[in-house]
Protein backbone atom coordinates (compact mmCIF):
# COMPACT_ATOMS: atom_id res chain seq x y z
CA UNK A 1 0.00 0.00 0.00
CA UNK A 2 1.27 3.44 -0.90
CA UNK A 3 2.19 5.70 2.06
CA UNK A 4 -0.18 8.47 0.92
CA UNK A 5 -3.27 6.23 1.14
CA UNK A 6 -3.61 6.91 4.86
CA UNK A 7 -3.38 10.63 4.24
CA UNK A 8 -6.05 10.43 1.57
CA UNK A 9 -8.23 8.40 3.93
CA UNK A 10 -7.96 11.09 6.58
CA UNK A 11 -9.22 13.70 4.13
CA UNK A 12 -12.39 11.75 3.39
CA UNK A 13 -15.56 11.74 5.48
CA UNK A 14 -17.33 8.56 6.55
CA UNK A 15 -19.95 7.17 4.18
CA UNK A 16 -19.25 9.71 1.46
CA UNK A 17 -19.45 9.03 -2.27
CA UNK A 18 -16.01 8.67 -3.82
CA UNK A 19 -14.72 8.22 -7.36
CA UNK A 20 -11.17 6.92 -7.76
CA UNK A 21 -9.88 8.04 -11.16
CA UNK A 22 -7.17 5.69 -12.37
CA UNK A 23 -7.97 3.27 -9.57
CA UNK A 24 -5.27 0.80 -10.64
CA UNK A 25 -5.79 -2.56 -8.93
CA UNK A 26 -8.23 -1.13 -6.41
CA UNK A 27 -6.04 -1.14 -3.31
CA UNK A 28 -6.99 2.40 -2.31
CA UNK A 29 -10.65 1.65 -3.05
CA UNK A 30 -10.61 -1.37 -0.74
CA UNK A 31 -8.78 0.59 1.93
CA UNK A 32 -11.30 3.44 1.86
CA UNK A 33 -14.22 1.02 1.80
CA UNK A 34 -12.94 -0.78 4.88
CA UNK A 35 -11.96 2.27 6.89
CA UNK A 36 -14.45 4.93 5.87
CA UNK A 37 -17.41 2.86 4.72
CA UNK A 38 -17.57 4.90 1.54
CA UNK A 39 -19.66 4.26 -1.55
CA UNK A 40 -16.79 4.08 -3.99
CA UNK A 41 -16.50 3.69 -7.77
CA UNK A 42 -13.42 3.43 -9.90
CA UNK A 43 -12.40 4.24 -13.44
CA UNK A 44 -9.37 2.54 -14.91
CA UNK A 45 -7.84 2.42 -18.37
CA UNK A 46 -6.20 -1.01 -18.15
CA UNK A 47 -8.43 -4.00 -18.93
CA UNK A 48 -6.41 -6.32 -16.70
CA UNK A 49 -6.63 -3.95 -13.77
CA UNK A 50 -10.38 -3.53 -14.25
CA UNK A 51 -10.67 -7.31 -14.13
CA UNK A 52 -8.57 -7.40 -10.96
CA UNK A 53 -10.88 -4.83 -9.37
CA UNK A 54 -13.97 -6.84 -10.38
CA UNK A 55 -12.40 -9.91 -8.78
CA UNK A 56 -12.23 -7.92 -5.56
CA UNK A 57 -15.91 -7.05 -5.80
CA UNK A 58 -15.25 -3.40 -6.62
CA UNK A 59 -17.40 -1.35 -8.97
CA UNK A 60 -15.08 -0.20 -11.71
CA UNK A 61 -15.60 0.92 -15.28
CA UNK A 62 -12.98 0.64 -17.97
CA UNK A 63 -12.35 4.08 -19.31
CA UNK A 64 -10.11 7.04 -19.87
CA UNK A 65 -10.48 9.98 -17.49
CA UNK A 66 -9.98 12.47 -20.32
CA UNK A 67 -12.92 11.07 -22.28
CA UNK A 68 -15.12 9.25 -19.82
CA UNK A 69 -15.53 11.58 -16.85
CA UNK A 70 -18.09 13.55 -18.82
CA UNK A 71 -20.71 10.84 -18.30
CA UNK A 72 -20.93 11.69 -14.62
CA UNK A 73 -23.32 14.48 -13.67
CA UNK A 74 -22.17 17.60 -11.81
CA UNK A 75 -21.26 16.95 -8.21
CA UNK A 76 -22.20 13.29 -8.34
CA UNK A 77 -19.42 12.48 -5.86
CA UNK A 78 -18.28 14.03 -2.60
CA UNK A 79 -14.67 13.33 -3.48
CA UNK A 80 -12.87 12.48 -6.67
CA UNK A 81 -9.39 11.05 -6.15
CA UNK A 82 -6.64 11.31 -8.73
CA UNK A 83 -3.53 9.55 -7.54
CA UNK A 84 -0.22 10.35 -9.22
CA UNK A 85 -1.63 10.45 -12.73
CA UNK A 86 -2.28 14.13 -13.43
CA UNK A 87 1.12 14.35 -15.08
CA UNK A 88 0.25 11.50 -17.46
CA UNK A 89 -2.68 13.22 -19.15
CA UNK A 90 -2.57 15.00 -22.47
CA UNK A 91 -4.69 17.81 -21.04
CA UNK A 92 -4.24 18.08 -17.27
CA UNK A 93 -6.25 21.30 -17.16
CA UNK A 94 -9.30 19.60 -18.68
CA UNK A 95 -8.94 16.72 -16.25
CA UNK A 96 -8.78 19.06 -13.25
CA UNK A 97 -11.84 20.93 -14.47
CA UNK A 98 -13.70 17.66 -14.88
CA UNK A 99 -12.64 16.42 -11.43
CA UNK A 100 -13.99 19.61 -9.89
CA UNK A 101 -17.20 19.41 -11.87
CA UNK A 102 -17.93 15.78 -10.99
CA UNK A 103 -16.82 16.03 -7.37
CA UNK A 104 -17.61 18.48 -4.61
CA UNK A 105 -13.94 18.18 -3.79
CA UNK A 106 -10.98 16.51 -5.43
CA UNK A 107 -7.88 14.94 -3.95
CA UNK A 108 -4.90 15.10 -6.25
CA UNK A 109 -1.46 13.68 -5.58
CA UNK A 110 1.57 14.54 -7.67
CA UNK A 111 5.09 13.18 -7.72
CA UNK A 112 7.16 16.29 -7.06
CA UNK A 113 9.54 17.15 -9.89
CA UNK A 114 10.97 19.90 -7.70
CA UNK A 115 12.56 17.41 -5.30
CA UNK A 116 16.25 18.12 -4.73
CA UNK A 117 17.33 14.72 -6.02
CA UNK A 118 15.52 15.35 -9.28
CA UNK A 119 17.08 18.77 -9.58
CA UNK A 120 20.55 17.47 -8.69
CA UNK A 121 20.20 14.55 -11.06
CA UNK A 122 19.54 16.88 -13.94
CA UNK A 123 22.15 19.41 -12.82
CA UNK A 124 25.03 16.99 -12.27
CA UNK A 125 24.31 14.15 -14.67
CA UNK A 126 22.65 16.26 -17.32
CA UNK A 127 20.16 13.47 -18.03
CA UNK A 128 16.45 13.20 -17.32
CA UNK A 129 16.05 12.22 -13.66
CA UNK A 130 15.21 8.66 -12.65
CA UNK A 131 14.22 8.34 -8.98
CA UNK A 132 12.17 6.08 -6.72
CA UNK A 133 8.93 7.96 -7.41
CA UNK A 134 9.87 8.51 -11.07
CA UNK A 135 11.37 5.20 -12.10
CA UNK A 136 11.01 5.47 -15.89
CA UNK A 137 13.39 6.69 -18.55
CA UNK A 138 12.44 9.74 -20.60
CA UNK A 139 11.48 7.60 -23.58
CA UNK A 140 9.17 5.18 -21.80
CA UNK A 141 7.69 7.35 -19.11
CA UNK A 142 3.91 7.82 -19.11
CA UNK A 143 4.54 11.17 -17.44
CA UNK A 144 4.34 13.79 -20.14
CA UNK A 145 3.38 16.76 -17.97
CA UNK A 146 5.64 16.63 -14.93
CA UNK A 147 5.19 19.42 -12.45
CA UNK A 148 6.46 20.57 -9.08
CA UNK A 149 4.53 21.41 -5.93
CA UNK A 150 5.16 25.07 -6.69
CA UNK A 151 3.81 24.58 -10.19
CA UNK A 152 0.63 23.11 -8.74
CA UNK A 153 0.18 26.16 -6.53
CA UNK A 154 0.52 28.39 -9.59
CA UNK A 155 -1.79 26.08 -11.52
CA UNK A 156 -4.47 26.63 -8.88
CA UNK A 157 -4.18 30.39 -9.32
CA UNK A 158 -4.31 30.27 -13.10
CA UNK A 159 -7.24 27.89 -13.22
CA UNK A 160 -8.90 29.44 -10.24
CA UNK A 161 -9.48 26.56 -7.89
CA UNK A 162 -9.05 26.54 -4.13
CA UNK A 163 -6.43 24.46 -2.38
CA UNK A 164 -7.99 23.49 0.94
CA UNK A 165 -5.20 21.41 2.21
CA UNK A 166 -1.76 20.75 0.83
CA UNK A 167 0.44 18.16 2.38
CA UNK A 168 4.00 17.11 1.74
CA UNK A 169 5.28 13.59 2.05
CA UNK A 170 8.91 13.45 3.11
CA UNK A 171 10.32 10.07 4.13
CA UNK A 172 6.84 8.82 4.94
CA UNK A 173 6.25 11.82 7.19
CA UNK A 174 3.44 14.24 6.50
CA UNK A 175 3.64 18.00 6.89
CA UNK A 176 1.63 21.02 5.81
CA UNK A 177 2.65 23.12 2.87
CA UNK A 178 1.89 26.84 2.78
CA UNK A 179 3.20 29.82 0.89
CA UNK A 180 5.81 30.58 3.58
CA UNK A 181 7.43 27.12 3.51
CA UNK A 182 6.78 26.41 -0.14
CA UNK A 183 10.42 26.79 -1.18
CA UNK A 184 11.63 24.19 1.32
CA UNK A 185 8.74 21.78 0.86
CA UNK A 186 9.15 21.94 -2.89
CA UNK A 187 12.78 20.97 -2.42
CA UNK A 188 12.26 18.04 -0.04
CA UNK A 189 8.83 16.51 -0.72
CA UNK A 190 8.64 13.37 -2.79
CA UNK A 191 4.93 13.78 -3.14
CA UNK A 192 2.38 16.57 -2.86
CA UNK A 193 -1.16 15.77 -1.74
CA UNK A 194 -3.85 18.37 -2.37
CA UNK A 195 -7.46 18.67 -1.36
CA UNK A 196 -9.00 21.07 -3.82
CA UNK A 197 -12.37 22.63 -4.60
CA UNK A 198 -13.82 24.76 -7.34
CA UNK A 199 -13.73 28.47 -6.52
CA UNK A 200 -17.14 30.01 -5.95
CA UNK A 201 -16.80 32.50 -8.76
CA UNK A 202 -16.25 29.69 -11.28
Amino acid sequence: MKPEYKIIMNMINEKSRVLDVGCDDGILMEFLKQNKNVDIRGIEISKEKVQTCISKGLTVIEGNAELDLKQFPNKSFDYVVLGQTLQAFVNPEIVIKELLRVGEKAIVTIPNFGHWKVRLNLLIKGTMPVTKTLPNKWYNTPNIHMCTIKDFFKFSETFNFKIFKSLALINRKVSNINYSNLFIKNLFSELGIFLIEKSDEN
Partner: peptide
Protein backbone atom coordinates in the same frame (compact mmCIF):
# COMPACT_ATOMS: atom_id res chain seq x y z
CA UNK B 1 -26.50 4.28 -15.79
CA UNK B 2 -23.71 6.51 -14.51
CA UNK B 3 -25.79 9.56 -15.30
CA UNK B 4 -28.21 8.51 -12.56
CA UNK B 5 -25.61 7.19 -10.15
CA UNK B 6 -26.44 3.52 -10.62
CA UNK B 7 -23.89 1.01 -9.37
CA UNK B 8 -22.36 -0.05 -12.69
CA UNK B 9 -19.13 -1.75 -13.65
CA UNK B 10 -17.91 -2.14 -17.20
CA UNK B 11 -15.16 -3.94 -19.03
CA UNK B 12 -14.34 -4.54 -22.68
CA UNK B 13 -12.81 -8.00 -23.03
CA UNK B 14 -9.98 -8.51 -25.51
Amino acid sequence: LNAIGTDVGFVEIE
